[in-house]
Design a protein around this nucleic acid. Structure first.
Lengths: 142, 142
DNA sequence: GCCGATATCAAGAACTATTCCAATTATTAC
DNA sequence: GTAATAATTGGAATAGTTCTTGATATCGGC
């Protein structure tokens, strides 16, 4: 049994397997939290929230689950400076704006037609596998 | 006495104070290493190299020096994933290309006339203080 | 040049995020 | 149902960095 309609609000159905990864109960719940709270939580944030539903889960398992989900391309791991890693279910290519005042992290999409690699003087022969863009700043009061 | 011409090759003259920071012997030597070896070394790399000239320096002092230099805008701290921080004397706005095969980090300049913020759908009112661009990939054999 | 105030340094302990390990439990394939 | 495999747990271990404390060096005023 995966879930019933009698459970808490906004239930998200998660299949038993995603891109070859067996979705155990723990992985489902970890994934569900990332889906419902798009706050870019840390492993510890996820751990504290997932305990409501799986009181016996360990932090190591949360790390394992997050790693498995990242490895299978189901979520993304995001790092700011040397702070704790954060996790993000938004798979579209995007950057992150880190509000220095509130600490909130906003996803930032590229405007259509933008190809970032064209803007850069890359070393000759460079083949890009991944791009990461992080902005830090404030949001002016309007 | 800061240095003499009899010392090792490619001596770099460093003033006694840079942007309000007192340049102690330790800070000078740390800075000198960053200037002469543009490898984006880690704190530990710097520590090992600086011991040639200051055998009694401690790792904590290297961290302190690097922090002071970063805080005064004399060098930049660069982070990849959650690896050790690396340090970089290149103050011009630039990104980093991380070669996954060799581990070498290449500075990547923006092509002239590019304003990155224009390419992004930022949250309304966002004021950017800092942009960080990291690319990961390989360099194709030519 | 001397003296108190301040800044820096050194050494090691402490801290934190993360990973590793060994034992247990769950799941799958047959 | 059983053996093989994979996942989970809890605690120990690790690595990078920061903190603490006492010693040392530097600065500003006299």
């Amino acid at each position: 049994m995966v879930s019933t309609t009698s459970e808490v609000s906004a239930e998200i159905e998660i299949p038993e397997e995603i891109s070859g990864l067996r979705m155990t109960r723990q992985r489902q719940e970890v994934y569900r939290i990332l889906q419902s709270e798009r706050n870019h939580p840390t492993a510890n944030d996820v751990f504290m929230r997932v305990k409501d539903r799986l009181p016996n889960i360990s932090l190591a398992t949360v790390y394992n689950c997050l790693e498995a989900l990242v490895q299978h391309g189901i979520i993304r791991q995001v790092n700011f400076e040397r702070e704790s890693s954060r996790y993000c279910p938004n798979l579209s290519e995007h950057g992150h704006f880190h509000d220095e005042v509130t600490g909130i992290i906003h996803d930032v999409d590229f405007k259509s037609g933008v190809n970032l690699a064209d803007m850069l003087s890359l070393p000759p022969g460079a083949v890009i596998d991944d791009i990461e863009i992080t902005l830090r700043g404030k949001i002016a009061i309007s």
